[in-house]
């Protein structure tokens, strides 16, 4: 048991190592000269050469990687060419904001997806089911940036009840103490409820824009699994033993049907990180994704590698978490290490 988990985590570490190589290679094959680009055309060749040396750009690719890797294990990801700060400091500054959005999205996505899936199953073939199906299609086919644009039109101009830009309103002071860096949490910890409410409102639109697609997918998958399982003998048998309908639906049918949904949710949460690149940008929300996007557009190589490694690490953590939830739900995985039914 423990051995199997250790093995799995070992594989993930290998993946992370591979990812670092991949990212490094992608970031370094940039055509053009990152040092020159960072400093602009007016700076003298000596200064540029100095920066090149500082960035190790004058050394062979392999040596560059080894140096970068050595730094990375000491959490030194180099300096950003754009902000001139160490990348790790920028990550510390911007990551909590992105985590806040993604966590809220994930909660909405999981709760909403499973809930709508159950409702659609309960009313299979009725109008509620049809409505949820149509809405799911709408959610699946619209990219988050389309939702973001629609929300900005709707809430920015037509019914301005929710803020469409930034993390907090200008009139609201930032949390007095930065504890986690997530404003909503810090406001709560410092007991500033008005601040919490404002920060929460700022989170709503971006996270809803990000989660609609995933929620729709989770709802559809939950429904199709529940409907498929409801025709299985074991549900019929339990029904034939007089298990009350509610208990049958919420306990005996839901648990086996949730397992595939969990794996899909993990993928969808990863996709949220990807789409956050655009949505944070649109909502002018100072998170790590917006930072990463500007790094990419400006060919800020250290920042690109740093941000991508952070997201890769988070993605792997999400996967481990989803493996754990699946194992908790599914005794076949927990006790045998694989589901084969």
């Amino acid at each position: 048991m423990v051995l199997r988990w250790l093995q799995r985590i070992g594989v993930y570490f290998l993946v992370l190592l591979g990812l670092s190589i991949l990212v490094f290679v992608i970031a370094r094959v940039i055509p053009g000269d990152p040092a020159r680009q960072a400093l602009g055309p007016r700076v003298s060749e000596e200064t540029v050469q100095a920066l090149r040396e500082k960035l190790n750009l004058d050394k062979p690719l392999f040596t560059q990687y080894v140096l970068w890797f050595k730094g990375a294990i000491r959490l030194d990801l180099g300096d950003s060419l754009l902000t001139r700060r160490p990348v790790i400091e920028d990550v510390r500054r911007y990551l909590p904001a992105t985590l806040e959005i993604v966590l809220l999205s994930a909660v909405f996505m999981a709760a909403g997806g499973i809930l709508f899936g159950i409702v659609a199953t309960k009313y299979t073939g009725k109008w509620q089911d049809a409505l949820i199906r149509v809405l799911s299609y709408l959610g699946i086919v619209s990219p988050p940036f389309v939702w973001a644009v629609l929300f900005m039109l709707l809430f920015g101009y037509i019914i301005p009840v929710l803020p469409t830009t930034g993390r907090i309103a200008q009139s609201v002071a930032a949390p007095t103490r930065m504890i986690t860096g997530m404003y909503t949490v810090d406001y709560l910890l410092t007991g500033n409820l008005a601040g919490w409410w404002d920060a929460f409102k700022h989170l709503l639109l971006p996270s809803i824009a990000l989660m609609l697609g995933g929620m729709a997918q989770a709802a559809r998958l939950t429904r199709s699994n529940m409907v498929e399982n409801s025709m299985k003998d074991y549900i019929q048998a339990q029904q034939a033993y007089g298990v009350p309908e509610k208990k049958l639906l919420y306990k005996y049918l839901l648990k086996p049907s949730l397992i595939p949904t969990i794996s899909i949710l993990a993928l969808d949460i990863a996709a949220v990180f990807g789409n956050a690149f655009l949505v944070e940008n649109l909502f002018n929300y100072p998170g790590l994704s917006r930072y990463g996007l500007s790094a990419m557009l400006n060919k800020d190589i250290n920042a690109i590698s740093g941000v991508v490694m952070v997201f890769g690490l988070i993605f792997i953590l999400v996967n481990i978490l989803s493996d754990m939830v699946v194992a908790w739900l599914d005794p076949r995985v927990r006790l045998m290490g694989g589901a084969d039914v």
């Binding site: 993946v15 094959v29 990180f273 690149f277 990419m296 060919k299 690109i304």
Partner: peptide, 24 residues
């Protein structure tokens, strides 16, 4: 399969953005 895992360890959007950003 390990190489595949490495590529799957990033959301496709981030990977595509990354690659796209470095090219014209």
């Amino acid at each position: 399969m390990r190489v595949t895992d490495v590529f799957l360890a990033l959301p496709p959007m981030i990977l595509a953005l990354c690659v796209c950003a470095i090219m014209r």
